[in-house]
Design a protein around this nucleic acid. Sequence first.
DNA 1: CCACATACTGATACCTAGTCTCAGTTTGGA
DNA 2: TCCAAACTGAGACTAGGTATCAGTATGTGG
Lengths: 146, 146
Amino acid sequence: MSSDTLRGRILAAGQRITPQRDLIAGVLERAGRPLAAQELCDAVGQEDPGIGRATVFRTLQSLQEAGIVQNVTLLGNQAGYLLCASAGHHHHLVCRHCGAIEDLPEAEVAPFLSGVEAAHGFGVDHATFNIYGACRACAGEEHAGR
Amino acid sequence: MSSDTLRGRILAAGQRITPQRDLIAGVLERAGRPLAAQELCDAVGQEDPGIGRATVFRTLQSLQEAGIVQNVTLLGNQAGYLLCASAGHHHHLVCRHCGAIEDLPEAEVAPFLSGVEAAHGFGVDHATFNIYGACRACAGEEHAGR
DNA sequence: CCACATACTGATACCTAGTCTCAGTTTGGA
DNA sequence: TCCAAACTGAGACTAGGTATCAGTATGTGG
Ligand SMILES: [Mn+2]
Ligand SMILES: [Mn+2]
Ligand SMILES: [Zn+2]
Ligand SMILES: [Zn+2]
């Protein structure tokens, strides 16, 4: 069960299991796409109105430290919180039509970064990418649809 | 004179020249690196305390539309405002030691994006990069310095 | 050079995301 | 079961940014 995995990852990060964390991680997991702060707070409040705003943000912080949640920048510079299955450093392709997310493994960007380092004499030590467009499904529809 | 150019670019975007825009663009130009909202407001207030906060943000908006200013994400997810000499779409390498910025032309990232499109069947229509590290000068110092 | 539509400005109120503090509660290990 | 440490909710607070509005400046066409 994936709940086991989630809990395992929380524990592995030296953090405690609490009902709040369970619930919040669950909301993100079921969403399957990045949620804005507002959306997340609403969804959490709907499942348990007792959970305070501060706890939501603290939990996001914890889950990020545990490598379970990633912060992505949505269109319009809005912050989105995304539950990630893969734990290591990786990036995301954001479909601007359906909101779906596709992982972009670090291995795929490493050669590009090496090229930049070589060309500019710049030692890259951290990089994030915000890549927006149409996922395969949506690109197909758009092409066929009109 | 670069002031001519700046004004030209503002006018070309169908916007009016005002003392406030002149001053704010000047502050950014002299900074030579991205400024956070706070820093910018402080610097502006120091040169002319009469300029209101709202005007600073509106001006940033206008200058962005005119392609003169770009919004970059500094470390810690802080927004930075950067005056860019080159007008077209391009990216930036941010030195985390001295704050210096190096332009990364779109042409250098295009092949990478094409590769992503091919590999994922994903139609990229907008991408931004946040690349942090050590510029040539700082990398040299670090290597030699200790 | 003047008149005038329109763009712009400052003040101010407002909003949202996110942080901080603090007193009380829960967790999980010994 | 006991306890230190981690966590929680409430609520105050901050920072970045936007909306409104009445007044002012800009630049264009006459
Ligand atoms: Mn992911
Ligand atoms: Mn630039
Ligand atoms: Zn899609
Ligand atoms: Zn440097």
